[in-house]
Simulated assay, not measured.
Amino acid sequence: MTTHSPSLQASPDQTAPSAPETLHVAVVGAGRVGTAVARSLLDAGYRVSLSASGDPALLALMAEIVTPGAEPKWTGDAVSDADLVILALPLHRLHTVDPALLHGRIVVDAMNYWPPVDGTIPAFAAETRGSSVVVQEMFPGAVVVKTFNHTGYHSLEPDRRPAGHPERLGLAVAGDNSEAVALVSAMVDRIGYDPVPVTSLAVTTFMQPGGPAFGSRLTAAQLEDLAGVPASAA
């Protein structure tokens, strides 16, 4: 049984699910980022579905080896009963995701815009407020939260630490909806990072390629300083 609320809308006063320990998370994208996130979530005790562009039967063998415990599914099936959706696919493939699938969902944007890989995508190339602003515009019925994108996929798992550990690092969690940010922050905390809530998608350039937080292994306090907006570790 999931805690997803089918009436969840992209509005400032919406109510997000409040039991992160019971979440079913759908990870869309089975590349290096998606599988690293999926393994971290599985290790933290979450139920995880994994989808890619192809038949889940073909994904199953890879998942058995790379993300044991994740459930390979078609994207539509994975999202339909998930409480939280994580987008971890190349941005040039984002247009293949039907906006209707994500309507009413809290969606984590773990992606970055990479012109050498994605080519020139005018909407992302012209956006000065952050690529997640464009993602939110592409999926107006969803509530977008940005995190996971500013740490390397190769660092995400080995850098995890229990709460209070002197080497515990931070992860920025940005969004326009405080309830959604709080839910995703609880998930980030559980997998082994100090979440740093940031109050707006429009100030997330510091987390992106070329920004001071991108690729850096930073504490929550250091991330708060870089955010330049009211933020605090959870």
Rank of each mutant, 00 (worst) to 15 (best):
V33H: 10
Q14P: 11
S7A: 15
L42N: 12
A26R: 07
D43Y: 07
V25E: 00
V37R: 04
Y46C: 11
A10L: 04
A36E: 08
V27Y: 02
T15M: 08
S49Y: 08
V25M: 05
A16I: 06
L41W: 13
D43N: 11
V48R: 06
P20S: 02
R32W: 03
S18N: 14
S5G: 14
S40F: 02
A38L: 00
A10V: 02
V27P: 04
E21L: 06
L42M: 06
S5D: 15
P20Y: 05
Y46E: 03
Q9V: 10
G45T: 03
R39S: 12
L42P: 13
Q9F: 01
L42Q: 07
V27G: 04
L41S: 04
S40Y: 03
S5Y: 06
S11N: 11
S5I: 13
Q14N: 14
V28T: 11
A26S: 10
L42K: 10
A16C: 03
S7T: 15
L8D: 00
V33A: 13
S49Q: 10
A10Y: 06
V48Y: 01
D13T: 14
T15Q: 10
Q14L: 11
H24Y: 14
Q9H: 05
G34Q: 01
A38C: 09
G45S: 04
V37D: 00
G31N: 06
A16G: 03
G29Y: 09
V25G: 02
S49F: 12
L50K: 12
T35F: 09
P20E: 02
D13H: 14
T15R: 12
A36V: 07
V25L: 01
S40W: 00
A44H: 05
S18Q: 13
A30L: 03
G29K: 02
P17H: 02
G45P: 07
Q9E: 05
V33P: 12
V28P: 05
G29I: 06
D43V: 05
R47W: 10
